[in-house]
Amino acid sequence: MKNLKVKTQNLVKLLDALKDASNLLAPQTDKYGDTYFQQVVDASQVVLKHFKPLMPAVREVLFGQLEDMITFKDTASGTKIKPVKAAKDTILFGLPNCDLDGILYNDEFFAKREFADFYYVNARKKLTIITLACLTPPNENCFCASMGHGPFAEKGFDLQLTDMGDGFFLVNIGSKKGQKIVDDNSSLFEAAGEADLSKWKELKQQAEESTTKKDVNKKKALDNMGRTPLKEQMIIEISDRCISCGACNYTCPTCTCFNVIDHKKDKAGTRKRVLDSCILGGYFRMAGGHNPKEAKEDRTRNRYFCKLLWDKEKLGDSGCVGCGRCLDACPVKVDIKDVIKQLSN
């Protein structure tokens, strides 16, 4: 990994240049106090402090809440269909590592298994990722290091920036795309020395410690989960509180389920996909009415098995990246950490 550094004011200049070359989405705070990914118009407005958006970065361009897939039109010689055009070049700036790992999960899920997902793959090819390492947990619900995911990234990014606190950001280059950005704007960067690197390592270690929850033992929880059934009392308690809003799915960086719907007016229309939620009863119900998971408890249990254990069996690691968003967005404060803790016992 080649390392450089960039002055804060030069970073703003870099963003200014990037916004002209491509769609640049970066965290900005609006006048109501909310921070989220927005199209950059004025690079000086970009938030340069690490942050965790409520909606994971994968939802921005790769796999959204509502996406057009196919347009269709009835003609005299039958229905003519056309795939919706591929996404445009986009740079996502300022995402935390949990979001990067979420995207890497989605890469595995959508792009690398049998039947690659056309829409995901095309959007992914056009995406450049510049992450901002989390020096401290963006909020109290973060526990990424306990799940083995961060808060600094080691791979998968195009560029990773770390605020060194002295007016500089350390720059890790993770890919050819990242290298090209650096090469195209080489006057803005300078070399990083040994001292920078050792300070960076120190920051990394501190950050990892601050996002490690001692009582969350991933390995033990997963081992136990494979052997014994989930504790029923815990599942019932969660189900009794759950108000079926779907937020734990909608905000999860590794939830990939979708529904497909057709919208048609007169002779033409669009086939779309809608982000789905396995907490909803209709998710499993078949035409004709039979539902293999009629009880909310069954769906709650399914969600934790899917997220924690089955993902490991399918893709090599548990789907939970420890971002804590399912708790951030949960109206009744169901905490996946509690589930993992109980499972570790």
């Binding site: 890469d107 792009a111 039947f115 690659a116 056309f118 829409y119 992914r124 083995g148 795309k177 690691d317």
Partner: peptide, 21 residues
């Protein structure tokens, strides 16, 4: 700390993906 194991790649697939949908 053992790292998460999703493989990293910015080039998920070579060539144009077939649109299975």
């Amino acid at each position: 700390m053992k790292r998460g194991k999703y493989k990293a790649s910015t080039k998920p697939q070579k060539g144009a993906a077939k649109n299975e949908y």
